[in-house]
């Protein structure tokens, strides 16, 4: 039996696990991005005036602290986070999604903050000069202009999540990791190598699907005037 035969004869299971993998990543990235973008929008105020106390101080504190904290979370090995959440949220999909979501936070938050704060000052100033209030400026000028950067952050975080989601199988999370754990535990047995190979390579297929998805989203959501 060669690899293709293996794939063909197990196509149903493999397809199911690939879909599950895709969905888990999609949900985690969706939740994580929503949190990060919302947080980024809320805290991306201007530099606080060092001589006057204002809400900007809280925003800046949350922003900087949030970036340091989520960056630190990203360095924690996935196995450790899965282990730490297992006693709280149990075996299964919930733990897998929570941990994956945590890993998506930093990249999206960083890109959101970077995108929002690097919008050309002249554009913001002219918006202010034309009578744009703070919220209107944020939502109709800063957000659309930062969107390509934010979207790229979401794309990168998706790729990373695909490879992390594999480890979720350790806590019985759904996805291609199941093929890996199954294969390695049966090492030497028939098709065990193909199982691991399929689990690894199909991650790239999932990644390719996401890449196409993002190419379309980019096309549809990046305003025409700033498309490269």
């Amino acid at each position: 039996m060669n690899f293709l035969d293996y794939l063909a004869s197990n196509s149903q299971q493999i397809l199911f696990l690939t879909q599950a993998h895709f969905l888990v990543v999609l949900i985690a990235v969706g939740i994580g991005s929503a949190i990060s973008v919302a947080l980024g929008l809320a805290v991306s105020t201007g530099e606080p005036d060092p001589r006057r106390f204002s809400l900007d101080w809280f925003a800046t504190g949350i922003r900087e602290g949030g970036l340091v904290f989520t960056a630190a979370l990203l360095t924690v090995p996935s196995l450790a986070l899965f282990a730490l959440f297992l006693p709280i949220t149990g075996l299964g999909v919930t733990t897998a999604i929570i941990v994956l979501t945590i890993y998506t936070l930093y990249t999206v938050l960083r890109n959101t903050v970077a995108g929002l704060t690097t919008v050309d000052r002249a554009i913001l100033e002219s918006a202010r000069g034309l009578g744009y209030g703070r919220l209107r400026r944020l939502l109709t000028i800063q957000l659309p202009l930062a969107w390509p950067v934010i979207l790229n952050g979401i794309r990168v975080t998706t790729l990373i999540s695909i490879s992390i989601a594999v480890v979720g199988a350790v806590v019985q999370g759904p996805g291609l990791g199941i093929l890996l754990l199954n294969g390695i535990s049966r090492i030497g047995a028939a098709n065990s190598f193909y199982q691991v190979l399929a689990g690894t390579l199909l991650c790239l297929v999932v990644a390719a699907v996401f890449e196409i998805f993002f190419a379309i989203v980019q096309r549809l959501t990046i305003p025409r005037g700033i498309r490269v």
């Binding site: 554009i123 100033e125 002219s126 918006a127 305003p223 005037g225």
Partner: peptide, 11 residues
């Protein structure tokens, strides 16, 4: 303002 400060994503 200088350089117009036009919004690049608006026609």
């Amino acid at each position: 303002i200088q350089q117009g400060g036009l919004f690049p994503h608006f026609s």
